[in-house]
Amino acid sequence: MSAIITVSGLTKSYASGFQALKGIDLEIRRGEIFALLGPNGAGKTTLINTICGLVNPSSGAVTVDGHDIIRDYRAARALIGLVPQELSTDMFETVWATVSFSRGIHGKSANPAYVETVLRQLSLWDKKDSKILTLSGGMKRRVLIAKALAHEPRILFLDEPTAGVDVELRRGMWQVVRQMREAGVTVILTTHYIEEAEEMADRIGVIRSGEIIVVEEKAELMRKLGKKELKLRLGTPIAAVPGALVSYPLALVDDGHALVFTYDARAERMGITTLLNAMRDAGLVVTDLETHQSSLEEIFVDLMRHAS
């Protein structure tokens, strides 16, 4: 797949000396859903805002579908729709007026039929004549998405789209994002909910202190960095792992009531049968067993810990 956004050597330093971005290199592929994960203050929003033209970069370059975001800003920005993190709306405007305005400032002539489609897709059609200040937080968020989609962008940036949104609305939002992708729109989202990235993303980038530390296909990331664990509950507690078993990656937990075996689920031979045999030989009785695969959240927490 070809890259639709190419970020190379992007840095951003503030007058205070704070370096928000430290040489970011990143490629976003055409048509994918890319999730940018990172703790607060990692530089997610700065990166997005720089690509969208809200922050002047200190050095480095960004191209959007081949257009440099500074030299050729018109062509680059025409392709991008941005949904900001803050619920910034023209409170006294109607939904219809504000979405039509967004289309206008992107230089697109009025197209009521298209605006209607967008509003219907986001379940805002019956609110089209309401003033924005009368809407709930979830609806305002959808108004911002409608505004971002008003000029038929090829790339959609969603900065924390589901922050403060209830579960049902969040699922509705995911639905919209999937529809976008089916329509061929590239989606880049930042999120605090790792569950969301796990659910939605094709690829995941992890950013920490202004540096991208991992970019990987989601499935690959979970396979590579994820672990599978087998927990074996013992009939009688033991004080230490018996000598015959020290060659296995075992950990004694629950005050000696259980052993945890960590293994590679992809390996041809995982060693479970030999372990069980060895345990029987050592006289250990297993009363229960459970397996557990690390979630993206655990991988993320691990990455953060290792990187620091």
Binding site: R77, D90, I105
Partner: peptide, 17 residues
């Protein structure tokens, strides 16, 4: 007012000089 409410983001990120 757009600076105060934050809606200026839209103007600044639009393909407009």
């Amino acid at each position: 007012f757009p600076r105060f409410t934050g809606t200026i983001y839209e103007i600044l990120s639009a393909p407009i000089s």
